[in-house]
Deep mutational scan, measured.
Amino acid sequence: LELTLRVGDKTWHFKDVDEEFVRHLEELLKRGAHEREIEEIIREWLR
């Protein structure tokens, strides 16, 4: 999967994204996660 995600003024483009990561992001967005929380999840995933 490829994913382009825009949060606030930042845009990330990922290739070979894990479906579990996408589901986790979807859940965060559904519950109205704040920009900082989403950025933290992305940084963790990139490690």
Rank of each mutant, 00 (worst) to 15 (best):
L1M: 11
L1C: 12
L1Y: 14
L1R: 08
L1H: 12
L1K: 12
L1N: 15
E2H: 13
E2I: 06
E2Q: 09
E2C: 05
E2S: 11
E2G: 09
L3G: 02
L3C: 03
L3E: 01
L3T: 04
L3K: 05
L3Q: 03
L3W: 02
T4F: 06
T4Q: 12
T4Y: 07
T4S: 07
T4L: 13
T4H: 15
T4G: 02
T4R: 15
T4N: 08
L5V: 15
L5C: 05
L5W: 01
L5E: 00
R6C: 07
R6D: 06
R6G: 03
R6V: 15
R6P: 02
R6F: 03
R6M: 13
V7L: 11
V7C: 10
V7K: 01
G8M: 02
G8R: 01
G8L: 02
G8W: 01
G8I: 01
D9K: 05
D9G: 07
D9C: 08
D9M: 03
D9F: 01
D9Y: 01
D9N: 08
D9Q: 05
K10F: 10
K10W: 06
K10T: 13
T11C: 12
T11M: 10
T11R: 02
T11Y: 08
T11V: 14
T11G: 01
T11E: 13
T11A: 04
W12M: 03
W12C: 03
W12Q: 00
W12V: 02
W12T: 00
W12L: 03
W12A: 00
H13F: 11
H13Q: 04
H13V: 12
H13R: 05
H13T: 09
H13G: 02
H13W: 06
F14W: 01
F14D: 00
F14T: 00
F14H: 00
F14G: 00
F14N: 00
F14E: 00
F14P: 00
K15I: 12
K15L: 08
K15C: 07
K15P: 05
K15W: 06
K15H: 15
K15D: 06
K15S: 11
K15Y: 12
D16F: 13
D16G: 11
D16A: 15
D16N: 14
D16P: 10
D16K: 09
V17I: 09
V17K: 10
V17H: 07
V17Q: 11
V17C: 05
V17N: 08
V17G: 15
D18T: 11
D18V: 02
D18I: 01
D18P: 11
D18Q: 06
D18K: 06
D18C: 03
D18G: 05
E19T: 10
E19N: 07
E19F: 15
E19D: 06
E19Q: 13
E20S: 13
E20Y: 12
E20P: 15
E20M: 11
E20G: 15
E20T: 12
F21M: 04
F21H: 03
F21G: 02
F21C: 02
F21K: 03
F21L: 04
V22D: 01
V22K: 03
V22G: 02
V22F: 05
V22P: 01
V22A: 03
V22W: 03
V22N: 01
V22H: 03
R23T: 07
R23L: 09
R23Y: 08
R23V: 07
R23F: 09
R23Q: 08
R23P: 01
R23E: 05
R23I: 07
H24C: 04
H24W: 13
H24L: 10
H24Y: 14
H24G: 11
L25R: 00
L25F: 02
L25S: 01
L25N: 00
E26F: 12
E26V: 12
E26Y: 12
E26C: 09
E26A: 10
E26K: 14
E26M: 15
E26S: 10
E26T: 12
E27F: 09
E27G: 11
E27Q: 11
L28H: 09
L28G: 04
L28N: 04
L28V: 08
L28M: 11
L28A: 11
L28D: 03
L28R: 08
L28K: 10
L28E: 06
L29H: 04
L29I: 15
L29V: 14
L29F: 07
L29K: 04
K30Q: 13
K30G: 09
K30E: 08
K30V: 11
K30S: 10
R31F: 08
R31Y: 10
R31E: 09
R31L: 13
R31H: 12
R31Q: 14
R31W: 08
R31K: 13
R31M: 13
G32I: 04
G32Q: 05
G32E: 05
G32V: 04
G32D: 05
G32M: 04
A33R: 07
A33L: 09
A33V: 14
A33D: 05
A33T: 12
A33C: 10
A33I: 12
A33P: 04
A33K: 08
A33Y: 11
A33H: 09
H34I: 07
H34S: 14
H34E: 12
H34Q: 14
H34T: 14
E35L: 11
E35T: 13
E35C: 06
E35V: 14
R36W: 14
R36N: 14
R36G: 13
E37K: 07
E37C: 10
E37N: 06
E37V: 09
E37L: 08
E37F: 09
E37P: 02
E37D: 13
I38W: 03
I38M: 06
I38Y: 04
I38K: 01
I38Q: 02
E39M: 09
E39W: 06
E39N: 12
E39P: 01
E39I: 07
E39G: 04
E39Q: 05
E40N: 13
E40R: 12
E40T: 11
E40W: 08
I41A: 12
I41K: 12
I41G: 03
I42N: 01
I42Q: 00
I42S: 01
I42D: 00
I42M: 03
I42F: 07
R43H: 15
R43I: 13
R43S: 10
R43W: 14
R43F: 13
E44P: 00
E44F: 06
E44C: 06
E44H: 10
W45Y: 15
W45H: 15
W45R: 10
W45K: 11
W45A: 06
W45S: 06
W45F: 14
W45G: 05
L46D: 07
L46I: 13
L46Y: 08
L46F: 11
L46V: 10
R47D: 11
R47C: 07
R47K: 13
R47Q: 12
R47P: 09
R47E: 12
R47G: 13
